[in-house]
C-alpha cells in the first residue's frame, strides 16, 4: 500500500484525539487476552491503533472488527502504555457511524434481539460447575425485553433500518 496516497496524516485527530494513542508501542498485550480476538475475523486492537496512527481511512471505515469488542476492558486494564484501547474502539465506532451512514453494525441487531452483542446467556453449566450464580439476562424477562426493543426503535439508526430488526 502506498502511504502517500492511501493515508491521511492527521486522521487520528478526527478519530481519537487524545494524548494516549501515540504511546502505543505494539507490545500486543491488548491482543493476547482479548476475547474478541477469537472471532473470525479476529478483533486485533493493536492493529486498529496502528491503522489510526497511520491514517488508513478506507481500511478503518470498512473494518467490522471494532464492533466485535465485548467491552470486557481487559485491554484497558492491562495496557502498559495507558493507550486506553477500549476508549479507542468506542471512538472508532463513533467515527465509523458518523462517516458512513450506510453502516449499520450487525451487532445492533444482536443487541436488539438479546440485549448484548454476545451470547452471554450460554455456558450456564460451566458457570454452575464453578459455583457462579445464574446470569439475569434480559431474554429471561420478555416484558422488559419488549420495553427495551421499543426504546431502541425510537433511535434513528434502528427505525430507519427497521427491516433488519424484524420490523
Amino acid at each position: 500500500m502506498d502511504l502517500q496516497q492511501g493515508s491521511i496524516k492527521d486522521l487520528w485527530k478526527a478519530i481519537y484525539n487524545t494524548g494516549d494513542l501515540h504511546h502505543c508501542f505494539n507490545c500486543s498485550t491488548c491482543l493476547s487476552g482479548c476475547p474478541a480476538s477469537h472471532g473470525d475475523p479476529p478483533l486485533l486492537v493493536r492493529n486498529l491503533a496502528r491503522m489510526v496512527i497511520l491514517g488508513l481511512e478506507e481500511e478503518l471505515l470498512n473494518s467490522d472488527t471494532p464492533w466485535a469488542c465485548v467491552s470486557c476492558s481487559k485491554c484497558e486494564e492491562m495496557c502498559p502504555m495507558d493507550v486506553k484501547p477500549f476508549e479507542m474502539i468506542l471512538a472508532i465506532r463513533q467515527w465509523q457511524s458518523a462517516n458512513d451512514e450506510t453502516r449499520v453494525p450487525p451487532s445492533i441487531v444482536e443487541i436488539y434481539k438479546r440485549g448484548y452483542t454476545q451470547a452471554v446467556g450460554v455456558n450456564t453449566d460451566l458457570r454452575d460447575s464453578l459455583g457462579l450464580p445464574e446470569l439475569k439476562t434480559i431474554t429471561k424477562n420478555p416484558e422488559q425485553l419488549k420495553l427495551f426493543q421499543e426504546m431502541l426503535m425510537k433511535t434513528p439508526v434502528v427505525s430507519a433500518n427497521d427491516y433488519m430488526f424484524g420490523g
Partner: peptide, 26 residues
C-alpha cells in the same frame, strides 16, 4: 509478544495465550 496474563487451569497447570507475529496466529 507481551502476554496479558498466565492462566491457572483447574488441574494446577499453567497456560498462556499469545500472538505470534511471525505467523500472525494466536
Amino acid at each position: 509478544c507481551r502476554v496479558q496474563g498466565v492462566m491457572l487451569k483447574p488441574d494446577g497447570s499453567l497456560e498462556m495465550r499469545y500472538f505470534d507475529p511471525d505467523t500472525n496466529e494466536f
